[in-house]
Design a protein around this nucleic acid. Structure first.
Lengths: 210, 210
DNA sequence: TCATTTGTCTAATAGTATTAGTTTTTGCTA
DNA sequence: TAGCAAAAACTAATACTATTAGACAAATGA
């Protein structure tokens, strides 16, 4: 009869508090570094004592894990949004590389949590890892669709893995050298057109002049 | 008269202890992660109490900083050693990429300390940073020597930065996916010949057939 | 209004880095 | 070989960290 665990109102309040905690945690991670998140500082900014946070999360690991999943969700949306404007394999290529870097610049704390290894003890849960694989795998499926049009001997996986490695390499170097500069600028940001032109020459679209 | 601060013997003992601490620290970092180094665990393995370590290093930061410098010294030696067998720009290219990855696989704790950002509060000292820049800059000087032979519109810095980004990208992905596999194997390791062939086609040696 | 749930609190445990001050050990010298 | 000074170890303490247990208060529904 009254087996609903909590009233809708309580649930709303609780959900609001959880979102507040996550948002405050991201602020701390952005300001002081991803690994510098501390339960005490988090509680301080929430006007709480640290143990109260354990009513909402089982510990710091669960906060990281939740933000890990949020990061991949946001990354997925980020790339999806940019891909809407894509009309060709060249667009696809450019958006993958630029999108990876722009995501990193716009969400540095989520980028680091998802794509670097900034937190000593933190290993994403099995569930979160599978979710991240699912999102990354869609890159492969997208590439499959273009494979026939491309004049290359490389396999689909080789193509996508190369793009991932280059995106990550450029982004990591850009972030550690000139994190204040926007996509496309700076020593490494400005290399995006360079590597795009290299990749386009290496795997040209069939029938197109080089 | 006897203004030599310490006797040679004492100095030798002291130096031996310091080397022992550094070596033990590297073991811990390899076993439990770079950021998991703790003064207590380090002291435990040295059969000491933690405060005694402060007779040799001003703190954990100085241990990290010393190992940061050691890492770059070793990286320099590693690349130099491989370069001895180099007879061409193609060799140079291959050695840079393979050497970066093999260094990471052979010295994972030094690689992470020098080329990733695994320790929350750690920022290398000005002195150590300049030393690392000095070592990396020699890559540019080496490339200058080959520039005239290459058929490309890219500047020297663009060439070297592209190689750095690709080396780092492939290595980072290799390490986080298949750290047990040797250079040249696995999803990302096996991409080295792929990217080499791409780079060689993009900036061919003048007069050579593609 | 009363009881139950929910949330926050305080207190405590066990870990971390680091400093101050004391004691022990070491190695040289007379 | 005995003594002395310096080097290197120690203990104790401070101020952090995450986390758990258990008490207390406040909000909610009957």
């Amino acid at each position: 009869m009254k087996n609903q665990p909590t009233s809708p109102r309580r649930q709303r309040n609780r959900e609001a508090t959880i979102q507040n905690i996550l948002s405050t945690a991201r602020t701390i991670m952005r300001e002081e570094g991803v690994a510098a998140l501390s339960m005490q500082e988090l509680a301080r900014r929430m006007d709480m004592r640290a143990p109260s946070l354990y009513n909402y999360f089982s510990g710091k690991a669960e906060i990281y894990d939740t933000l890990f999943r949020l990061g991949f969700t946001r990354y997925d949306e980020h790339i999806k949004g940019l891909m809407k404007a894509s009309t060709s394999w060249h667009d696809e290529l450019r958006i993958n590389i630029e999108g990876y870097m722009s995501f990193a610049l716009e969400n540095p704390e989520l980028y680091q949590l998802c794509f670097e290894h900034p937190v000593p003890g933190f290993i994403p849960s099995q569930e979160s890892l599978q979710m991240s694989f699912g999102i990354l795998n869609r890159s492969y499926q997208r590439a499959e669709g273009f494979k026939k049009e491309l004049d290359t001997k490389l396999t689909c996986q080789q193509i996508v893995d190369t793009i991932i490695a280059i995106s990550h390499g450029l982004t990591a170097m850009h972030i550690s050298n000139e994190p204040h500069l926007p996509v496309g600028q700076g020593r490494f940001g400005s290399l995006i057109p360079v590597v795009l032109s290299i990749l386009e020459k290496t795997m040209p679209i069939k029938g197109e002049n080089k």
